[in-house]
Design a binder for these strands. Sequence first.
DNA 1: GTCGGTGCAAATGCTTTGCATTGAT
DNA 2: ATCAATGCAAAGCATTTGCACCGAC
Lengths: 158, 158
Amino acid sequence: MKNPITESPKKQPTAPLCSVFRRFLKSKGLKYTIERADVLDAIIARDGLFEAEELLLELRRRGHRVSKATTYRTIHLLQDAGIIVQALFDSKQAHYQLIYGKEPRDHMVCMKTGRLVEFQSGELTQLRDRICKQLGWTPIGHRFQIYAVSPEGQQPER
Amino acid sequence: MKNPITESPKKQPTAPLCSVFRRFLKSKGLKYTIERADVLDAIIARDGLFEAEELLLELRRRGHRVSKATTYRTIHLLQDAGIIVQALFDSKQAHYQLIYGKEPRDHMVCMKTGRLVEFQSGELTQLRDRICKQLGWTPIGHRFQIYAVSPEGQQPER
DNA sequence: GTCGGTGCAAATGCTTTGCATTGAT
DNA sequence: ATCAATGCAAAGCATTTGCACCGAC
């Protein structure tokens, strides 16, 4: 049987991202500001999943003073530009992930320990495309989360 | 090629649900109240996806006076009981779906028109189980959402 | 010099909570 | 009778917005 998944991240060249964003902004008549660049940099630095509050902290850590309002506004722009997407786990707050130029990355959460594992599955993407084709839809993206119990979580409780 | 999906709902006998809930409550030393029964009934009546506010309306429509607080509290209990799960689409508000005794139901959203289609795919569940097995995890559930453009949405804009 | 952008603080809107009262067992 | 549940209104919190000032083009 074919290996259904390829676990874990491979670093991707991040260089073109800022020009992608720049181009997007220009096409909309919007401006490329220091704050927007800083937000994108912080996101690239984290590379995986992040939430708005974390991003604020990352920005502070790097000595960048970007307001919460601007951070949220930039997150929206980056979504419109197709650079990041939301990846929701609970209704408390939104989680985002960088996707531009990457394979879709899916998530498995342990219901006991909360451990989170990322993986990617080409088979899943194929299945998605097949489902869309069958119904006459054009796929854009997907979100897949598995809820499970990790090996550590299997331990009998005490 | 095997048909990857089976579209759309088949009515399921809903009779045992209330006793499942009743049993769950008893096991936790909690009480089965009229309000809790009313909330579960309203959920069964909708059968598909719902959000808290909609549920309130459904309850009102049926002439049941359940407060917002109790509705939210009951939704949590039903999640703990494994009768419903969250199925998030956006960060604005939580969406829930009835799952007890059903095949997992997944969703496809049109990015242009907002149209929502439910489907179920046994193949997806198999893939999920395979992924879990490979990493030594025990699957509990999953959430799969496809973002796509529906045939109607393909129309050139005007 | 023009707009669009930014920060701040206030506003929003879904969800949760404290508390006095009510009700299931 | 007891202990949990309810309803109400207030509180929480992530996210959004109005507005006066600032800065990219």
